[in-house]
Design a protein around this nucleic acid. Structure first.
Length: 331
DNA sequence: AAGCGGAACAACCGCATCCAC
DNA sequence: GGTGGATGCGGTTGTTCCGCT
């Protein structure tokens, strides 16, 4: 590729922060003549900068229609929603935020929104509940943490729920279920240790998910296995249940085998991976790119972008009524 | 008050893409 | 269709600011 060949000695060109004098020169020139050729502009404007530097300074800072100040909640939501569809296409996202530059949005994403999503247990790359490939090798630790969680549940439910059921714990349980359904055979010793304990609430929670049901059939450990209460199952909080399935909007390439009778995914254990849970997703951009999404579908109607895991989770976190979910499950 | 570390943001760099010739 | 210049874009770096010890 061609580098921007300088009209003058490149080493003599100034770099670094712009001075107010330089800014004024650039503003004055563009107001009088327009920017024209960026390459020729510095010499014409009397600036000892490269054209690229001038362009960036103008588009990211000096342009009169630049909007300054904090991002509003609405703007933040727009960024998140479009990022989910467009990925790191900052300029494309910026088109939906008048007055905001791609650079500003990119910086805001990297310094604020990314952390915000991570804290909520959302993978900022995939916009799905965070999973970590290390989770498989760390299963014993994960289960130990889960056991600890279930011990917490032995205190009165209403208090326990309000105090303890937060995104982290949801994520913990969610990760377990994903591991059970998608990974190679889990550490059965750790599982049996967990279930041999008196942590029946956690056990029941897990058992209500069909993945564990299948697992228990595979590795019968002598624990009593009561019939699944259908009503309780229907009350199970579908932490990945958009109003419309994500894949309905955006077909997702999937190499997993499917059952003959339906589109229901079949796990490596031969039992259905619960349709209440998303597939295990990698945090890597490479894997996320396997999702085939047509941005046009959503650009025309950004609200569609919220029919997603993120929204389901956000609603779960935000809605105080969700405590009832947990009370229902546990009771 | 000084030092330190992290957060925030402006600016740079290199590659990709567009477009005129 | 090939070539080279101009511009756009996204990742990364460097600097400044600010809060904490």
């Amino acid at each position: 590729m061609m580098a921007e060949s300088p009209l003058q000695d490149e080493s003599a060109l100034k770099k670094g922060p712009w001075t107010p004098e330089e800014d004024q020169k650039l503003i004055d020139y563009i107001q009088k003549h327009g920017h024209g050729s960026w390459r020729a502009l510095p010499m014409l404007a009397g600036l000892n900068r490269c054209g690229k530097s001038c362009r960036l300074r103008w588009t990211n800072y000096l342009r009169p229609d630049i909007k300054r100040g904090n991002f509003s909640e609405e703007e933040q939501q727009i960024i998140i929603d479009f990022h989910q569809v467009l990925g790191n296409k900052w300029s494309a996202i910026a088109q939906h935020l008048p007055g905001r530059t791609d650079n500003e949005i990119k910086n805001f994403w990297n310094t604020h929104l990314k952390k915000k999503l991570l804290q909520m247990g959302i993978d900022p790359v995939t916009h799905r509940p965070r999973t970590d490939l290390n989770i498989i090798t760390n299963l014993p630790q994960l289960l130990a943490a889960a056991a600890n969680f279930s011990n917490l549940m032995n205190i009165p439910w209403d208090n326990a729920i309000k105090a303890q059921v937060d995104a982290t714990k949801l994520q913990l349980l969610h990760n377990i279920l994903q591991v059970l359904g998608n990974s190679p055979p889990p550490n059965m010793e750790a599982l049996s240790n967990l279930f041999a304990s008196r942590d029946h609430q956690l056990y029941e929670y897990l058992r209500m998910n069909s993945q564990l049901e299948g697992l228990l059939k595979c590795g019968e450990d002598g624990l009593s296995s009561q019939g699944v209460n259908a009503q309780a199952q229907s009350n199970y909080p579908n932490i990945d249940a958009p109003q419309q399935p994500f894949s309905d909007h955006y077909p997702i390439k999937d190499s997993k085998p499917r059952s003959h009778n339906s589109d229901q995914l079949v796990s490596s254990y031969g039992f259905p991976t619960s349709n209440t849970l998303p597939q295990l997703v990698s945090a890597s951009p490479e894997c996320s790119s396997a999702n085939t999404i047509n941005p046009n579908d959503i650009i025309s109607n950004p609200s569609n972008a919220t029919s997603t895991t993120f929204e389901a989770w956000r609603n779960l976190m935000d809605d105080g009524a969700n405590d009832n979910y947990w009370i229902d499950i546990i009771e």
